[in-house]
Design a protein around this nucleic acid. Sequence first.
DNA 1: CCATTGTGTATTGTGTACAATTAAATTGTA
DNA 2: TACAATTTAATTGTACACAATACACAATGG
Lengths: 147, 147
Amino acid sequence: MNWDEKEMLKLDNQLCFALYACSKEIIALYKPYLNSQGLTYTQYITLLVLWEEDGLNISELGNKLLLDSGTLTPLLKKLEKSQLVERVRDRDDERVVKVFLTDKGKMLQETFSDLPQKMFCNTGIRVEEAIKLKAMLNQLLGNIQKL
Amino acid sequence: MNWDEKEMLKLDNQLCFALYACSKEIIALYKPYLNSQGLTYTQYITLLVLWEEDGLNISELGNKLLLDSGTLTPLLKKLEKSQLVERVRDRDDERVVKVFLTDKGKMLQETFSDLPQKMFCNTGIRVEEAIKLKAMLNQLLGNIQKL
DNA sequence: CCATTGTGTATTGTGTACAATTAAATTGTA
DNA sequence: TACAATTTAATTGTACACAATACACAATGG
């Protein structure tokens, strides 16, 4: 093993760990806001999607969130139990479960309307930096998906 | 809710989701390499730390990996079961458990010596881009930790 | 010396996350 | 119309991830 290889095996030199750590820490910053409404981060981003487009089925949600049915099925049942969504099996195709926001679920959007701005302040990052960073992440994600 | 607020509640406009998605997808790229050696990503980065500095205790590992004992205790017991590490309770302070690599665990480093390079190629990102991205992530992480 | 405070690990409970499998329903095709 | 292939969710099993708690031990201050 040469010097370069040894250097690159150090945790601090790994891009993946920086991503992994950043992701976890930022999600942790969301927690106080979300937990106060009885939500987790994954449940929150599921609602984000439904606020944009209601009545998606589970695989459509999974495509947008990059999550599979093993994650979404129990999560959506919890959201249903707290009466934020309704799961309705499609009459025309009984395999399909469509997910609809309840009135309570729709109203919750207002509660979180200022959360993105709040979170942005918490990170202490400049606007142009954030835009640049997101662009780089999206490009990276695009590269990976193509494989 | 004004237009800006509504825009920022869209999934695709959220930096946090870009981080979360990127992190998961890159870790997924690691899986074939790691699973072939019976390892998960979290176990791999734990070994990365130990290859740099052997004999750390659990809280020291947790500080470097940003993980708590609830995650590390069962993980280290699995690594011990597969004979890659040894958990030794400190004689002087019975609260402390120190973690040492076995010979088998030390030798595994060679097996992964070219993995960072391989992974880098898989992402299809340019060197300067990767460096820039990692710098931005580390700065963001620094900002958060200070809160 | 001893009560208090702090530290280090383990345990329990909840909630993802994903691979693999199953099961039901639909679709394509001979 | 049979029936194979595909699609869609749900289920099962393994592995994090973290909050909350418990517990043992250590350090410290009066």
